[in-house]
Design a protein around this nucleic acid. Structure first.
Lengths: 170, 170
DNA sequence: ATAGTCATGTAATGAGTTACATGATTGC
DNA sequence: GCAATCATGTAACTCATTACATGACTAT
């Protein structure tokens, strides 16, 4: 049930429509919690029913602007501080690693080499984002930079691991 | 559709029943692709319908032993080498990080400190598994050790990041 | 006028989780 | 005899993805 909290979190910075949120997800949360348009509108409806958000304004083209309610804020804080983050994270990449015996060593090394390359590429992309977000002083930018740093460290580790793993295969 | 490939991968090491697979998942794949009993039996049915596995033996208590077929092996290899691993990985932990402005700095530091502790604990658990799997010379153990090393490096990175992040909050 | 963007909603499908339901065999 | 383990299957529910469907406003 994290989509709900992602929406609440974005609304905690100020009111927004479903359309606004969709763009906000794309620029800020796309790497940690992607959401589709369809999902957003459905979730906003449920959140409104549950009283965690309310329609704060209506505009042209049926635009509905949502604002987080007090209950919504309470739920968001509760989720951040009291609900345990999920432990197990599925990885279809690591799953493939378990089965590398099925393909021949050359292919297995190529597989790991590609992972290393892609990690390097992802790291470079994140560096690009960094340049973009560096200036922002809004909460999402400030804390987003912590998440960004996680990504930089993670992609480094991933590349180093893949390079190491490639050497293990003989 | 990775559960299907996880099952094919395990069956590539030899025939097994749903019950056997459930235990295999628990001891080998639980950290990269957990599966429930319910899911397994359903998937085995679908795999059999699709001709990727076949019932190779029947035993007491309605036990059905499944073996991977040639088509199954082909599909497994295709998945490993040609299908791109998923890029975006949802993280409800990092999602919380984006919203740390919602709670006060003391709580935010405590949140990050707990993440560091848990990463250290997870690392220690993995070390324990390492002792256990060190001896194995079957394919799953050999390649599982690569995945295990990933886990060790990842938990280290996570701990270091969380300690760093904690210091960023003032 | 018309292209671009703003804006919302529904339906179908697939995947994962939890709970329900049942029964046979084995070892003590 | 009985507890533990072996063994399979189904149902309800939630979440995420893709596709379908529609229409209003704005700037040129």
């Amino acid at each position: 049930m994290s989509l709900r909290h992602a929406v609440l979190g974005l609304l905690s910075e100020g009111p927004a429509s479903g359309y606004d949120l969709l763009k906000l997800f794309d620029v800020s949360l796309s790497n940690v919690w992607p959401a589709t348009q369809s999902q957003l509108y459905t979730e906003l409806g449920k959140l409104a029913d549950a009283g965690l958000v309310s329609v704060s304004a209506e505009g042209p083209r049926g635009r509905k602007e949502y604002a987080i309610t007090e209950e919504g804020t309470a739920e968001l804080r509760h989720w951040i501080t009291e609900v345990e983050p999920t432990q197990v994270r599925r990885s279809d990449l690591l799953l493939r690693v378990f089965f590398l015996a099925e393909i021949d060593p050359d292919q297995a090394r190529a597989f790991l080499s590609k992972i290393a390359d892609e990690a390097a590429k992802n790291r470079a992309d994140l560096e690009g984002i960094r340049g973009f977000v560096e200036a922002g002083s809004d909460n999402l930018s400030v804390y987003g930079r912590l998440a960004l740093e996680w990504g930089l460290r993670f992609t480094d580790t991933q590349r180093e691991w893949a390079e190491w793993a490639e050497k293990q295969i003989r």
